[in-house]
């Protein structure tokens, strides 16, 4: 049990990272425990072997492949770059609004009712216009007859003709 606890402290002991009290406790244990002292020695060998671990050269073709990757411009980034151009922003904004309105219309569950209402309103509008047109015609006729009456009345009150009488 003591050895388990001491073994856990061995890396920090080797690095000089223990508090003085703990350092002294490990040192005292190492003097009396051959197993822990041996593990400490193997820890030293491990550290030395890891520190001088060889760095391997990759295969000669790899560098060429990586350079080819560097030179390749992905299609996505090209398209994305085009879409990010400031000149296209108003067009994209208008397109977004149109898309939103169209999708709201197409996805509306009461679309057929809406269509019927639009047709009804349209026809009602046409009816009103026709009525207005007809009324305008009758007004023109009325004005014509008023003008005629007025003319006759004016002739009847002509002072020259009255003097003759």
């Amino acid at each position: 049990m003591i050895c388990d606890r001491i073994e856990e402290l061995l890396p920090a002991y080797r690095d000089g990272g223990l508090e003085p009290e703990e350092h002294a406790r490990v040192e005292a244990h190492l003097r009396s425990c051959r197993g822990c002292a041996l593990l400490l020695a193997f820890l030293g060998e491990t550290d030395a072997a890891l520190a001088s671990f060889p760095q391997v050269d990759p295969a000669p073709g790899l560098r060429g492949r990586l350079n080819a990757v560097a030179g390749r411009k992905p299609l996505f980034s090209t398209v994305f770059g085009l879409l990010r151009k400031p000149a296209l922003q108003p067009v994209l904004a208008a397109a977004s609004v149109v898309c939103a309105v169209v999708s709201l219309y197409l996805l509306n569950p009461g679309r057929h009712e809406l269509e019927k209402e639009i047709v009804r309103t349209f026809h009602r509008g046409i009816g009103r216009v026709e009525k207005l047109y007809a009324r305008t015609g009758s007004i023109t006729d009325s004005i014509g007859s008023y003008a005629e009456n007025l003319y006759v009345s004016l002739q009847s009150i002509n002072p020259l003709e009255r003097n003759k009488d």
Partner: peptide, 20 residues
């Protein structure tokens, strides 16, 4: 990180000891 590195070193040292 310190805890992971120390645990790894210790485990490798045990592997080395065992193989020896």
């Amino acid at each position: 990180v310190k805890s992971r590195v120390n645990r790894g070193r210790l485990q490798l040292a045990r592997i080395l000891q065992k193989s020896r």
